[in-house]
């Protein structure tokens, strides 16, 4: 058995003294693991870092075998992300989400988005928006997609302001007002391309996806929310607080 594909590294685990087991999100073969002989060598270690895009050849005698990877670097993103707490936590959050997918199940749309998110992870202003959109896509791929196209109660497509925690469908401001305490806020930037998210909208967006991740994914599997996700949100808040403090100082 042999195939060639490109992939983004999600993690590496030591195997023996010289080898490593690599976990990769590939374009056409989904999340896939494989053994990299000599994966702990000085030459290979910089390549086998999470976030790097690589060209992979997988070989095994039988399809169900772990198999071996032959890896060549395409884009070495990891080193660029080291300095940013948001980027590093974001990377771990992305990897944690992708581990929820079954192995060897292709998700090309997720792969494309993953590449885009990683490209902008070191820009905290963009990273938050991209990651929350990735989470919405993840929920969709896991079979728990949100329907944000129209109001669940009236069918209206305008002024959608809430999401029903029961159905995961959007609700218009008018229809949702009486139950606003029980509704999840739907930030406008998730509906309209080109709108930038402020702090509050970002918090609302992550609360929205976090709610459905907890209910449909983590709780049924007995998982807690990944610590990296909370750390990512903390890093975003610190970044925003730093920006506000900076603009406050300059205004003063």
């Amino acid at each position: 058995m042999e195939w060639r594909d490109e992939g983004i590294i999600l993690g590496t685990r030591r195997h023996g003294e010289t080898s490593a087991i690599l976990e990769v999100m590939t374009r056409a073969h989904g999340r896939h693991l494989g053994l990299v002989r000599g994966g702990r060598s000085r030459k290979q270690q910089p390549v086998l870092q999470a976030g790097n895009r690589v060209d992979i050849i997988w070989r095994a005698r039988l399809d169900e075998h772990l198999g071996t990877f032959q890896v060549e670097a395409l884009d070495l993103n990891a080193a660029r992300l080291f300095d940013s707490a948001a980027a590093i936590y974001g990377l771990q959050t992305l990897a944690g989400h992708l581990r929820l997918l079954p192995e060897r199940d292709p998700h090309e749309r997720l792969y494309e988005t993953l590449g885009l998110v990683i490209e902008h992870l070191d820009d905290p202003a963009a990273a938050g928006e991209l990651l929350v959109r990735f989470e919405i896509m993840m929920l969709d791929e896991l079979g728990f997609g949100l329907d944000l196209s129209e109001c669940a109660a009236t069918g209206a497509r305008a002024d959608l302001a809430y999401v029903s925690p029961k159905s995961g469908r959007a609700v218009s401001r008018g229809a949702g007002e009486p139950w606003r305490d029980r509704m999840l806020t739907l930030p406008a930037f998730l509906l309209e391309a080109g709108l930038r998210a402020d702090n509050r909208a970002m918090e609302d967006a992550f609360r929205l996806t976090g709610f459905f991740f907890s209910r449909h994914v983590y709780e049924p599997r007995g998982f807690a929310e990944p610590e990296a996700r909370a750390a990512f949100l903390g890093a975003l808040r610190r970044h925003q607080a730093g920006l506000s403090a900076g603009s406050g100082e300059s205004a003063a």
Partner: peptide, 14 residues
Amino acid sequence: ATVEGQTTAHYLTD
């Protein structure tokens, strides 16, 4: 200077 090492460094800094 690995992703795991730097994740730990950021966590400790926090």
